[in-house]
Structure formats: structure tokens, C-alpha cells
């Protein structure tokens, strides 16, 4: 499997705060990487650096062989990105918004309309297509954000909390969608829902306070807990004071 995303000793500091410290990992084609960590751990910051929104203080990011600082446009072309909170132009209708994305992504000809129809169908937003985005519910806004990210069928997909704010049925749909797409893409998702990692991810990474704490398969993550409990494993890795024994005796 060819390596698609290559992150090497990435650092990002905002003034005195070191948000990301020496994070390195790789994502292969066909993999779904789950990005875990407590709030403020540096997940979103790392994703913003991969997509070229933020410049790293030091370290490199390569996507499909292109360095994100040297060839930002090339990287942005091959990446589909759902930013945190799924921002979109509220006054636009779903249809005009997707058309705008298709314009910027330079989709042309018959392929363009076909692709828009396809995505609208996959994401299930057909009946809100003429509604302005600001009138949509949180779940639909999130779906429009995902639709926008996959419109140009990118080889790399970065989704920041794609299931946040969705109801259980919608979560299930999005997870299925991710699994379906994973075959011919490299996908990175961040999430707080640990079952999601087990359900859709082929690999998991945990960062805490900007430092990479774990990199392995979900099975390996679960094995970190003596109770085979993924939540417990997450707590052991991200909170230094909790170890298996103390946690058990406290209960």
C-alpha cells in the first residue's frame, strides 16, 4: 500500500502554547485513521496543518508526494476536508453551494453534474437542495459539509468530527459511507466516540497535550486495557494518573 499522507515531527506553537509537539505518522492508501484525544489535544490543529490551513512551526507534511508548504495548491486539490463545525456560506442554497465548490474544484462537462447528483444521492440531501444552508438543522449542515468534501472524489479525505451532532441513524449512515469510500482513499477522521474507532477505523492514533501517545490498530488499543474496554484504554493512555489498578479499586 502506497503511503499517502506523511507527517514528520510536526510542531505548532501559538505564542507560548505548544499545541502540537513532534507528531509523526503516516497514512496509507486504503486506510481509515481514527484521530483521538481529549479536547484541546491538538487534533484539529494537526488536521489544519495537513490541509494547508495552518503553517507548521516546524516539521513537514506530504500528501501524495507534495509538500504542503511548497505545493499548497496541489495538496489542496487532492484533499477533501470537512473543517470542525462544518462551516458553509449560510445564505447560499445547498445547490448553489455545491455548484460553487464544483466551480472552484474545476469539475467540468457532463462529469460535473453527474458527480453533484451522485453526491447529493449518497449523502441523502436531495430534499433540502433548494433550501438555504442557514435554515438547515445541525445534522444536515454536517452532511452538506461532507458532500462538499467528497465532491471531487479526492484521494485523501480529512474529516474533523464528521458525526458530531448527528442522530444515531445518521451516524450509522456516515460510518457506512466512510467504510465504503475507504477502499480507494486515505481517510483521517477525528472523533470523541470510541466505538466509532472500532467500527470504521483500521488504525487509531491518540494525541494528548500535543504529543503522540499511541499509534496502532483498534485491537491493539483495546489490548491496552486489562478489561478489553476501549474507553478504559483511552483513559489509561491520556490521563497519566490513571492506571489499571487504581481505576479498578476505585470502583
Amino acid at each position: 500500500m502506497p503511503v499517502t499522507i506523511k507527517v514528520k515531527s510536526l510542531n505548532k506553537s501559538f505564542g507560548p502554547i505548544n499545541a502540537v509537539r513532534g507528531v509523526s505518522f503516516e497514512v496509507n492508501h486504503g486506510e481509515v485513521l481514527g484521530f483521538l484525544g481529549p479536547n484541546g489535544a491538538g487534533k484539529s490543529t494537526t488536521m489544519k496543518m495537513i490541509t494547508g490551513f495552518l503553517e507548521p512551526t516546524s516539521g513537514t507534511v506530504e500528501v501524495n508526494g507534495f509538500d504542503v508548504l511548497d505545493n499548497p495548491i496541489e495538496v489542496k486539490r487532492s484533499v477533501g476536508y470537512l473543517p470542525e463545525g462544518a462551516p458553509a456560506y449560510g445564505e447560499m442554497t445547498v445547490k448553489s453551494f455545491l455548484n460553487f465548490i464544483a466551480d472552484v474544484r474545476q469539475l467540468t462537462g457532463s462529469h460535473r453534474q453527474k458527480r453533484i447528483d451522485e453526491v447529493v444521492d449518497i449523502i441523502n440531501i436531495k430534499h433540502v437542495i433548494d433550501q438555504s444552508i442557514e435554515t438547515l438543522s445541525k445534522g444536515f449542515k454536517r452532511r452538506v459539509g461532507i458532500a462538499q468534501a467528497i465532491l471531487h472524489d479526492p484521494s485523501v479525505l480529512i474529516l474533523d468530527e464528521p458525526t458530531d451532532g448527528l442522530d444515531p441513524n445518521q451516524k450509522h449512515e456516515v460510518r457506512n459511507l466512510i467504510t465504503e469510500m475507504s477502499e480507494d482513499k486515505a481517510i483521517v477522521i477525528s472523533t470523541h466516540i470510541l466505538e466509532e474507532v472500532d467500527a470504521v477505523c483500521s488504525r487509531a492514533i491518540i494525541i494528548s497535550s500535543g504529543v503522540l501517545m499511541f499509534d496502532g490498530t483498534p485491537t491493539e488499543l483495546i489490548a491496552k486495557s486489562d478489561r478489553s474496554d476501549i474507553d478504559h484504554a483511552f483513559r489509561i493512555i491520556t490521563t497519566p494518573t490513571v492506571n489499571g489498578k487504581r481505576e479498578t479499586s476505585a470502583q
Binding site: 490551513f53 472552484v104 474544484r105
Partner: peptide
């Protein structure tokens, strides 16, 4: 303010 700048700046646009 609305965060759409993150969307705009991660599209292939200078």
C-alpha cells in the same frame, strides 16, 4: 467570524 475562511483557504485557491 463564521469560519468559512477555513473552507475557502483549504480549497485549491491562492
Amino acid at each position: 467570524k463564521s469560519g468559512t475562511i477555513e473552507l475557502l483557504m483549504t480549497l485549491p485557491v491562492s
